[in-house]
Design a protein around this nucleic acid. Structure first.
Lengths: 122, 122
DNA sequence: CTTATGGTTTAACAGTTGTTCAAGTGTTCA
DNA sequence: TGAACACTTGAACAACTGTTAAACCATAAG
């Protein structure tokens, strides 16, 4: 990603003014776009997808997730932090063990739906 | 991203074998996960989201998109290539002008749905 | 207390990504 | 043919990302 200095970023003339004007008015606002892209960015990593997929079926501790995916606890922990920050997962501590689970069913829906979309050959 | 040399990637013992075994059997296969993550990765960029959002409302040429988003034709063209490669958009040439549009309604659905998800405060 | 264990955090590193600039296509029109 | 325009492409660069290793924190058991 690079800077957006705001000035002089467009190097061409508008070819179809009616279209640009009309679409301009229909665009979602910056906040929604960024929020959406941000959410998709979190989903856009295989490790995180695997973690979410696993948590779809059961709450799990870091160790078990690491074993399941054949990765280190550290990397799993890092990714869980991302998922925590975006409120996709929640956790509870039981002694030394920390159990992670999906924040709400919402996520399971998005996930399942997307999976069915892709298997229809998008 | 780093290598996955396959060996010795897990630095811990399994704590709850029943859970790991059960979830192991329920995981989607590698291909589906990668496909899904790959699709989300494409969606996970604000510029591409804006382009897709614009094309939701009308087919547009590179120049107009660049003007609409206040960016250079070059960067728009680069992103359109990504969207072309993932079959999210198609194009047609009319003289000197190239018009881009969504590949199918499918995409509009995913997009709209995700937008409504986020505005519900995910 | 000390030790062991599950988990987190920090810094560092390589790989990836998005934008820019400059050069290159392809098409139209004089 | 040649100029003009719409767009594409390639290389380069800075910013970002995911994994690693090592140090650290938190809890439990001796």
């Amino acid at each position: 990603m690079k800077h957006s200095n705001g000035i002089d970023r467009c190097d061409c003339n508008i070819l179809h003014k009616e279209i640009v004007d009309r679409v301009q008015g229909l665009m979602p606002d910056r906040e929604d776009i960024n929020g959406l892209a941000g959410l998709f960015k979190v989903f856009g990593d295989a490790t995180r997808m695997k973690i979410l997929s696993a948590l779809t079926h059961s709450e799990m501790c870091v160790c078990d997730i690491a074993a399941l995916l054949g990765m280190t606890k550290s990397s799993i922990s890092h990714q869980l932090r991302v998922l925590k920050q975006t409120r996709l997962v929640k956790y509870r501590r039981e002694g030394k063990v920390v159990f992670y689970s999906l924040q709400d069913e919402h996520i399971k829906n998005i996930f399942d739906q997307a999976l069915s979309h892709i298997s229809e050959g998008l």
